[in-house]
Simulated scan of single mutants.
Amino acid sequence: MRLFLSTLAAALALATAPAFAQTLDEMAGQMILLGFSGDSAGDASVRAVTTQLAEGEIGGVMYLRTNVASRDAVTEMNRGFLAATPDLPPFISLDQEGGSVERLTRAVGFEEIPSAAAIASSRSVAEARVLFEHQADAVAAWGFNVNFTPVVDLATNPANPVIAKFGRSFSAGANIVTAYAEQAIAAHQAAGLVTSLKHFPGHGSSAGDTHEGYVDITESWDDTELAPYRALIAQGYSDFVMVGHLVKTDISPLPASLSPEWITGVLRDDLGFKGVVISDDLEMGAIRQHYGLRETVRRAVLAGMDVLLFSNTSKPRASLGDEVRAILVEEAEADPAFRARIEESYGRIVALKGRMGRSTG
């Protein structure tokens, strides 16, 4: 039995997705997923982002650890976010991988799980499934509907400063990564959560960290790093794929997150991915140090990106969502091809949102 929604089911969801938004502004807004300041429903920054959701100016929010003061505070904020757009729910997301990459911690009453590397080295696939089920049920109980997990990078470089260093990969072997990732995805989907494979096309062989700056994988990357994506997509996986800011110059001079060769060519055409493509944080050094906001947005959308993720930590401001949406609308009004890309992304986003909260187990 396949672990994921079938490609046919995903296609039917897209075909029957209700057209909630009627305007270009609203469609563009759904493509923006934004970090925010504050850790309680009464904070001005939280009220501002709730208003943006209600008015269709953004399509979702992302939590960092600084947003988490207590379970009660988080669940109250999440209830407010959901109530703001009851017909087309927002993505309420976080990175809750396990190990050191967790936004919900023991300090606020969340039962943490080990890192991916620790899980794969100490537990069978069946034992890991039970652990993932506990994790997913708890994340859902706190009011989230998106967890950016699992990491399907291959830990082929033991000195890697962002994947191997923190045990974020299950293994250097593609089959092992795929087997454990299957269980993480199935457990989350059974809890009604949307997941994300990351960091396409593969961050595990790199010698650098895209948080800090430009990372060239031309000499280190190998096609085997696509194997987990190929296997999971072939099984019908159609939630998120998160694209990293990695450069392989013989494929494209641009970071993968801005590259049509990677997103449209490899991920869509070669691997057959039908789901929603989301960027890694577009405020990371690999992007911020080389591209302005308008060029980043324009290139990402034309490359095939569906959701633009901004942590809103570089120069935190309530207006960031408005700035990004204005760029999307202006570019669409000037270029029919750009508008067509927004409409295409909107259809995928609505289809995915239509599945959130529905158990597939």
Results as ranks from 00 to 15, higher is better:
residue 333 E to F: 06
residue 104 L to N: 05
residue 360 T to I: 05
residue 127 E to K: 13
residue 90 P to C: 09
residue 20 F to R: 15
residue 254 L to Q: 02
residue 26 E to Q: 13
residue 79 R to F: 10
residue 148 F to E: 03
residue 84 A to H: 13
residue 147 N to G: 00
residue 63 Y to S: 06
residue 349 I to W: 01
residue 341 R to Q: 09
residue 144 F to Y: 08
residue 243 V to M: 04
residue 359 S to A: 14
residue 317 R to N: 14
residue 198 K to P: 05
residue 10 A to M: 11
residue 279 S to G: 00
residue 357 G to Y: 01
residue 114 P to H: 14
residue 283 E to F: 01
residue 131 L to A: 04
residue 216 D to C: 04
residue 45 S to E: 04
residue 29 G to A: 01
residue 358 R to P: 13
residue 287 I to M: 05
residue 22 Q to C: 15
residue 332 A to L: 01
residue 184 A to M: 01
residue 156 T to Q: 06
residue 236 G to S: 10
residue 218 T to G: 04
residue 344 E to P: 12
residue 120 A to F: 00
residue 324 V to C: 01
residue 307 V to I: 05
residue 86 P to S: 09
residue 338 F to P: 01
residue 348 R to H: 00
residue 335 D to K: 11
residue 96 Q to D: 06
residue 327 I to E: 08
residue 221 W to T: 15
residue 338 F to I: 10
residue 96 Q to I: 10
residue 258 L to G: 10
residue 71 R to H: 07
residue 65 R to M: 09
residue 282 L to A: 02
residue 184 A to C: 03
residue 350 V to Q: 07
residue 178 T to C: 03
residue 140 A to D: 02
residue 64 L to A: 12
residue 112 E to W: 07
residue 203 H to F: 02
residue 223 D to Y: 12
residue 221 W to L: 10
residue 292 G to N: 13
residue 287 I to A: 06
residue 36 F to C: 05
residue 120 A to M: 03
residue 191 A to V: 07
residue 133 E to N: 10
residue 45 S to W: 04
residue 203 H to T: 04
residue 226 L to A: 06
residue 92 I to V: 08
residue 310 F to A: 11
residue 53 L to C: 06
residue 241 V to S: 09
residue 84 A to M: 14
residue 51 T to S: 11
residue 296 T to S: 08
residue 24 L to K: 00
residue 94 L to R: 11
residue 117 A to S: 13
residue 224 T to H: 11
residue 237 Y to F: 12
residue 148 F to L: 00
residue 207 A to Y: 10
residue 279 S to W: 01
residue 3 L to S: 12
residue 30 Q to T: 08
residue 10 A to C: 14
residue 74 V to D: 08
residue 52 Q to F: 01
residue 93 S to E: 07
residue 314 S to I: 14
residue 48 A to Q: 11
residue 29 G to S: 06
residue 316 P to K: 07
residue 160 N to M: 05
residue 119 I to M: 13
residue 64 L to E: 12
residue 323 E to P: 11
residue 242 M to L: 04
residue 224 T to N: 14
residue 124 S to A: 06
residue 269 D to P: 12
residue 17 A to I: 07
residue 247 V to M: 03
residue 140 A to N: 10
residue 139 V to I: 03
residue 68 V to T: 08
residue 51 T to W: 01
residue 321 G to H: 04
residue 13 A to W: 11
residue 355 R to L: 14
residue 250 D to A: 00
residue 177 V to S: 03
residue 117 A to P: 13
residue 252 S to V: 08
residue 5 L to T: 14
residue 284 M to H: 01
residue 280 D to T: 10
residue 104 L to Y: 10
residue 123 R to H: 08
residue 184 A to N: 00
residue 18 P to W: 00
